[in-house]
Amino acid sequence: MFNISTQALFAQLLVGLINGSFYALLSLGLAVIFGMLNIINFAHGALYMMGAFCAYFLLNVLGINYWMALILAPLLIGFLGVVLERTMLQRLAGLDHLYGLLLTFGLALIIQGLFQNYFGSSGLPYAIPQQLTGGQNLGFMFLPNYRAWVVIFSLTICLATWFAIEKTKLGAYLRAATENPTLVRAFGVNVPRMITLTYGFGVGLAALAGVLSAPINQVRPLMGADLIIVVFAVVVIGGMGSIMGSIVTGFALGILEGLTKYFYPEASNTVVFVIMAIVLMVKPNGLFGRA
């Protein structure tokens, strides 16, 4: 029963799960940022790319390995996010949300353009860390260790973020500030600082996804440009009202995309957009969205 085509099916499912991990990490970051800042961060894809480049430089210039990069890159890029928020995004408070989209789109153009100038469009290789080379033969398929790690680690990070926001005291402050920043401020909470750190955290998640993807997809200046559009569709499908919703939608759409690659490869590029169109017709606020 486990013939070649079943193997191919599971292989595509795994690709789908991997992509789903990135969709989930990125849409989670977008949702967290949108909740606090009311900004759709168009630069998310560019910052994801910077996370991957950061890991590449840490390894090739400073000799810092993958495991340290997994911690350092999100911190460094997250700090860049904090600087961007403090110098630019903060000034948009009170303006139409669309200005945030336009500003971050401009930032994405700048970042991607700069990287393209120096690195062209081709990919730079990033080796899989020694501890995670090889794979397991599961009988019905061959599972590369690194890919299994990406899925499990992403899922852990997503669930930890969900727990931190929904179940801890800090998360309660955050949710309260999302609902009514003025009132939370009156209780003595430093809301502007919280907003800045939230943006830094969301950006850090994007950078983390970038580091994870570096050994799978090569490190390219435009690696985030097309991805962010798919993630936008994911966000529209899920609606940004729920943290768990972003995670579930991200993984589910990755898997669906993988299945499409197996059953009808011609549509694999467009399936997420088609689903988005259907969801908008049936449930305009998204699967997990609030009216």
């Binding site: 630019m88 336009l102 500003l103 789109f105 401009g106 930032l107 994405a108 153009l109 700048i110 970042i111 991607q112 353009g113 700069l114 393209q116 100038n117």
Partner: peptide
């Protein structure tokens, strides 16, 4: 050109 366009946007 892309970078300059981005700067103009910002």
């Amino acid at each position: 050109v892309l970078v300059i366009q981005g700067v103009i946007f910002v």
